[in-house]
């Protein structure tokens, strides 16, 4: 699109200023995580980079067993993202390559309905159910209830619908059964979509707070997000922001890295199709 030079300059300025404003909180958090306690406690606040970065991260790491929390968060996020991908690919495959089997519409709606039932709507009974299963304070409770994915099922179904039908026919002529076709043809073709879904679901799971809060009690089963609260709650008097921010940076780094790596596939594989 044609734009004038003034418009161009205005756009640059607006974008730069907005981005500075959006980035500021995180930059300030990062800076604070390098300060000594005195520096972080000064008013007016200091914006220089301090020299206590390692001390603060070590303190945060030790204070709330950050290593364990990061491990737990990584484990459940990878497991849930992978579980959602596998389950939704299988379901989407069923909905696209087997014609109008009996009950198909009902099954499809049942899976889509996940969208309508966020955790708060069913939190008490789900909690009790997990308790009855004896899953309290286990990885099962933190992963399995999240395995179904309406988003994923829709995403893969939509993608499969764009794959030419001839490909399945060719595979049949080539002697490949449905599972082989899925594994050897559809799965490799779905790479972009799988990466996109992995990114979304990893971040989604990493950022879960309420459910891990109620189904875990022991410190070795807690996740990073709860770790933040533990860091904050330890502060009865003046907050030790330098240490808290070190913990915060650790908590936000993994999803941020995944986002930056997979951003491309996410936009191509997911965001561009979402509105259909």
């Amino acid at each position: 699109m044609q734009i004038t030079r003034t418009q161009r300059a205005l756009a640059h300025i607006t974008l730069t200023v907005s981005i500075l404003l959006i980035v500021f909180p995180v930059v300030f958090a990062l800076v604070t995580s390098t300060h000594s306690f005195q520096e972080s406690f000064s008013f007016p606040p200091k914006f220089h980079v301090g020299s206590h970065l390692l001390d603060n991260y070590r303190a945060a790491w030790e204070r709330v067993h950050m290593g364990r929390l990061l491990f737990n968060s990584t484990l459940i996020s990878v497991a849930v993202a992978a579980g959602k991908i596998v389950l939704s690919i299988l379901a989407a495959f069923a909905f696209t390559y087997f014609g109008e089997f009996r009950g198909k519409a009902t099954l499809f709606i049942l899976i889509l309905i996940t969208h309508m039932l966020p955790l708060p709507i069913r939190i008490v009974p789900t909690f009790e159910l997990v308790e009855d299963f004896g899953w309290m304070n286990t990885y099962y409770a933190l992963t399995i209830p999240f395995f179904a994915s309406a988003t994923g099922t829709l995403l893969f179904r939509q993608f499969f619908l764009t794959v030419p039908n001839d490909l399945a026919d060719a595979a049949r002529m080539d002697g490949a059964g449905p599972m082989k076709f899925l594994w050897k043809v559809l799965v490799p073709l779905s790479k972009t979509n799988m990466l996109a879904l992995f990114m979304i679901e990893f971040i989604y799971m990493w950022n879960q707070y309420l459910w891990p809060l109620i189904v875990t009690q022991s410190n070795d089963m807690r996740v990073v997000q709860i770790g933040l609260k533990m860091l904050l709650a330890g502060e009865e008097q003046a907050a030790e922001w330098n240490v808290i921010m070190a913990g915060t940076i650790l908590a936000m780094l993994p999803p941020l890295i995944i986002l930056l790596i997979l951003q491309g596939s996410f936009v191509k594989g997911f965001a561009m199709r979402q509105e259909k």
Binding site: I22, V26, I203, W206, N207, Y209, Q225, L228, K229, T248, A251, M252, P255, L256, I258, L259, L260
Partner: peptide, 9 residues
Amino acid sequence: WPFALSPAV
């Protein structure tokens, strides 16, 4: 990138 931040963060 703020997409990657959690509400708690």
